[in-house]
Amino acid sequence: MGQSMRINLQVWRQRNEKAQGQFETYNVETNPDMSFLEMFDVLNEQLIEEGKEPVAFDHDCREGICGMCSMVINGRPHGPKQGITTCQLHMRSFQNGDTIVVEPWRANAFPVVKDLSVNRSAFDRIISAGGFVSVNTGNAVDANSVLISKEVADEAFEAATCIGCGACVSACKNASAMLFVGAKVSQLSMLPQGQPERETRVVAMVNQMDAEGFGACTNTGACAAECPKQIPLSVIANLNREFYKAKLNGK
């Protein structure tokens, strides 16, 4: 086990969506093997013992797959390392004595619920608008009756690994959700099963995305750089192409 570390934490505190928020400063004793969220556990336990209100933050699986954790750490969603979520970040990525500023995802489309916790239901509504294949249970043919090349399957899988955490939106200066939408559109447009609804899907999803109040993409690439699943920027190009094609066909 590593040496103990002292961290100066500046954490965004906000009672609820409507309330004004502000930063609070805390000192936490931690060690390099602790995960970032475990450090928050330690802080919260400390706060509870002192009779203070613990910091609310979202987290669940703590292994980088559920997409629930969501902290902007020193200006970067999920912290300083690439390809991981907040829960996979360990204190060994920081130095003893560091000051760390922790904020929630910030975007109009992701209103703050409390402290570091935000409401990402906009993503669900986008999926609900078209991020599916309309196949009722029981309609399927044998799984091997449609062959899909390994290359296509792998590429579709890569896009499908999106965990819907919203780091893309959080990192984007325009609070754009196009990496998220692009990932789902890419996955389903590549696979044969996604073909029948290919055009209606992309239009419906983009319309919903716009209605939710996400910004427009200006191709800075920040989303892909911060994506914990390293979804490539090419999914946005796919999204654009799919959308224009659908529009050309009058969808």
Binding site: W12, G21, F23, V72, N74, G75, R76, P80, V101, E103, R106, A107, N108, A109, V112, A171, K173, N174, A175, S176, G213, F214, G215, A216, T218, T220, G221, A222, A225, E226
Partner: peptide, 18 residues
């Protein structure tokens, strides 16, 4: 686009990703 994020980040690190 700027209006899509009314509450700004206190600390931003844009140079880290773009």
């Amino acid at each position: 686009n700027r209006a899509k994020r009314k509450a700004k980040y206190a600390k931003s690190a844009g140079s880290a990703n773009s």
